[in-house]
Design a protein around this nucleic acid. Structure first.
Length: 731
DNA sequence: AACACCGCGTTTTTT
DNA sequence: ACGCGGTGTT
């Protein structure tokens, strides 16, 4: 390696414009390396430069490198940037998500994996439907045995590498039932050659583990393995990576324990520690210089996250100037909060800022509606990031199900989805009959449908309808043989009457569904089958693409929209102007996370993630009252606000009203005495001359300026009153 | 098959 | 409050 450097090779483009730590990581020896990369510390840059270094300096072939990410977006970005640097298309380098890589391995070793060659992917929606069907067939009460719960149980077991056969016999009723559903689910999937997302990883893991030749092949091939967002790996993903490593290869993992926000879906931050222990001679490098946020924002974020324990410990610093203070706005209610945010965004835009530089971040999706209303009212263009993705839309999934069924007639999952969509007289009874018979005979529903028609087992009407369906699919199968991918999809959408069916719906929704179908045809036209695999038919490649990649919902870069998203979806992004909305106890930190300390720490990390998205200016907002679940609720400021030192915050003053410093407001008064000498306290019953009897809900401030919130019951509702004038008497 | 009504839950999301 | 999914009615 040293000799490589002695040559007159120009490596300046690899190391210039990097700080010392980044350079250390990029040019590190071929060893196991843990890069603790703080928010905005340039980790993608380091990964990309590192890979280029491996190729150009260490002379590794791209063939010998494996780079793993969590999202397709991250994989794509990495690929693009590597290609730009290396100056060639590193086609034989594996860069992808855990799932896409697993899928690739399963395709190559389908026999060893005990899968049919044409195994199909089912997404979580398909999985849910299948589980629901199993529960129904077991004649169980869905209310008592929610499919969601069973789905969670199954995925959780798989994520921990546990098969039904590994489960100990249990006499717990619930456990027993879940086991039997899991077992049945596994049988059906195996029989029909279906794999869900968790299965992709588990099956790959088992295949590699149980086949020495395959294991050695990959261990030898992947001389260097790089993993991004390591704090998000789950147990199985860790074991999966562990299996690929050997004494002859090394790994570089990049992660940030402070940005671990996915423990609820199985991510184990602890894997960072395990790496240090399990991988020999690990070199740990900390990237602590932040290139994103101004000084104030960063210090505030550092102070907040310092309240968490068991951290690896990092101290992010920046060379940037202090910048503006964080502004805090205490809104009267959620509408006021939205109004304020929109007003500030307009101001930003009037000062030559762009809408697309603004992001409104919130804890839960329910918060978006009121923000949207305010944005619409003000005529500010916005986009909601996240939500239903393109390939998840029902109309798209229906069209894809047709294609799946045409491609693989035995795909029962696809069959069930569209056998009666659009409605063609094949009702639940008929489908039930076929399902039943298909199980008895151990053949697919498609094949069974043939039998049912041939044997005339059903009334003429149903038989007829089924026959039409068979003909439709067969006709399409023949017709598409010579068509281009986009034409195939167009043909299917047309002949399945999906399009005319949707066209009947004149509403805006129906209209957008039609547009989505057009977009699907369009997407197929743009699709490059080589992205998946050179060796499989374009249609199969496209279906795989659709299954593995949900499709972007992101606003196009060129359009000027305000970005709305949850804090979770904001990870990895940055914006000049950021609003953190709804900083209220119970909302953020969320009620569901407040009971256990780990939950609370994760909420705090989430807050940290949110704050560190901001480059120039950060706003905190909260509302004193908010509509939640149809009820107006009193809210108190989030504890996270009090964890940020006052020196970093400036309170936005309300119009003419002088507001109490937020630090004082955290400790809410519970009692006061009025000018007339009566003492009032929270929870007390009082009488008002006009509103009648009520109960004091909140007391704010003291003395002459004190405000009271009193609940006068159904007819009058809750009112804010000035203690001085309200003239309340104890009831 | 289309529509109306009822009851329930309601944090976060990728593949 | 609201929307979703399930059931029952026309």
């Amino acid at each position: 390696m040293a000799s490589a450097r002695m040559h007159a090779m120009d490596i300046s483009h690899l190391l210039n414009d990097l700080n010392d730590k980044q350079r250390e990581a990029v040019s590190a020896p071929l060893a196991n390396i843990l890069v603790l990369a703080g928010a905005g510390s340039g980790k993608t840059r380091v990964l990309v430069h590192r890979i280029t270094w491996l190729i150009e300096v260490e002379k590794l072939s791209p063939f010998n490198i494996l780079a793993v990410t969590f999202t397709n977006k991250a994989a794509r970005e990495m690929k693009t940037r590597i290609e730009a640097m290396v100056g060639m298309t590193a086609n034989n380098m594996w860069v992808g998500t855990f799932h896409s890589l697993a899928h690739r391995i399963l395709r190559a070793h389908w026999e060893a994996a005990n899968l049919p060659k044409n195994f199909q992917i089912i997404d979580s929606d398909d999985q849910y439907r299948l589980i629901r069907r199993i529960i129904r067939e077991k004649q169980l009460d869905e209310a008592k045995w929610p499919p969601r719960q069973a789905q969670w149980y199954i995925n959780n077991k798989k994520d921990n590498g546990i098969r039904p056969k590994d489960l100990p016999k249990s006499y717990d009723h619930f456990e027993e039932m879940m086991q039997s559903i899991y077992s049945e689910y596994e049988t059906i999937c195996q029989k029909s050659g279906l794999i869900d997302f968790a299965e992709m990883l588990l099956r790959t893991y088992e295949t590699i583990r149980d086949h020495k030749d395959i294991k050695e092949h990959y261990q030898k091939r992947f001389r260097y393995i790089l993993v991004d967002e390591f704090q998000d790996t789950n147990t199985l993903q860790y074991k999966w990576l562990r299996l690929l490593s050997s004494p002859n290869n090394n790994s570089m993992i990049v992660g940030d324990d402070d940005q671990s926000i996915y423990s609820w879906r199985g991510a184990r931050v602890d894997n960072l520690n395990r790496f240090e222990k399990d991988y020999p001679d690990t070199l740990t490098i900390r990237l602590e210089q932040n290139y994103r946020s101004s000084g104030n924002i960063l210090s505030a974020a550092n102070k907040l996250i310092a309240n968490n324990h068991d951290r690896f410990g990092k101290n992010l610093w920046t060379a940037a100037e202090e910048g503006e203070l964080i502004s805090l706005y205490s809104a009267f209610n959620d509408m006021d909060e939205a109004r304020f945010i929109v007003e500030r965004i307009r101001k930003w835009q009037q000062d030559d800022g762009r809408f697309s530089e603004c992001a409104i971040l919130y804890r839960s999706n329910a918060q978006s509606r009121i923000l949207e209303e305010a944005l619409i009212q003000a005529g500010v263009p916005y986009r909601i990031y996240g939500g239903l993705r393109f390939f998840d839309r029902a109309e798209i999934k229906n069209a894809l199900a047709y294609l799946n069924l045409i491609r693989h007639h035995d795909n029962d999952s696809a069959y069930e989805r569209i056998v009666n969509v659009p409605p063609r007289g094949i009702g639940p009874r008929t489908v039930e009959h076929i399902r039943e018979l298909s199980r008895e005979r151990g053949q697919s529903m498609w094949t069974t449908t043939f039998d049912v028609v041939k044997e005339k087992r059903l009334p003429a009407r149903a038989t007829n309808a089924l026959n039409n369906f068979l003909e439709l699919i067969e006709e399409a199968t023949l017709a598409i043989a010579d068509l281009e991918l986009a034409e195939v999809i167009e043909h299917v959408i047309h002949h399945s009457t999906l399009r005319t069916y949707l066209a009947k719906d004149r509403s805006e929704k129906g209209h957008s569904r039609l547009e989505n179908l057009d977009e699907l045809v369009n997407a197929a036209g743009q699709f490059d089958p080589d992205d998946i695999d050179e060796d499989i038919p374009p249609l199969s490649a496209f279906l795989t693409h659709a299954a593995l990649e949900a499709g972007e919902t992101q606003a196009s870069q060129h359009q000027d929209y305000v970005q709305l998203m949850t804090l979770h979806s904001a990870k990895g992004l940055e914006f000049p102007l950021v609003f953190l909305a709804g900083l209220e106890e119970g909302l953020f930190p969320h009620q569901m996370s407040m009971e256990d300390p780990n939950g609370l720490s994760e909420e705090r990390r989430l807050c940290y993630v949110g704050m560190t998205r901001a480059m120039k200016k950060l706003y905190f907002t909260y509302a004193e009252t908010r509509y939640l679940y149809g009820q107006e609720k009193m809210q108190s400021p989030s504890r996270f606000l009090s964890e940020v030192p006052e020196q970093h915050i400036e309170e936005v003053r309300l119009r003419t009203k002088v507001s109490t410093p937020v630090s004082k407001r955290f400790h809410q008064e519970t009692s006061i005495s009025t000018a007339s000498g009566t003492s009032l306290q929270v929870g007390q019953q009082v009488t008002h001359s006009k509103f009648g009897e009520g109960m004091i809900v909140t007391i704010e401030g003291s003395g002459a300026k004190a405000r009271l919130q009193v609940n006068f019951g159904k007819d009058v509702g809750t009112k804010w009153l000035m203690a001085e004038y309200a003239n309340l008497t104890p009831a």
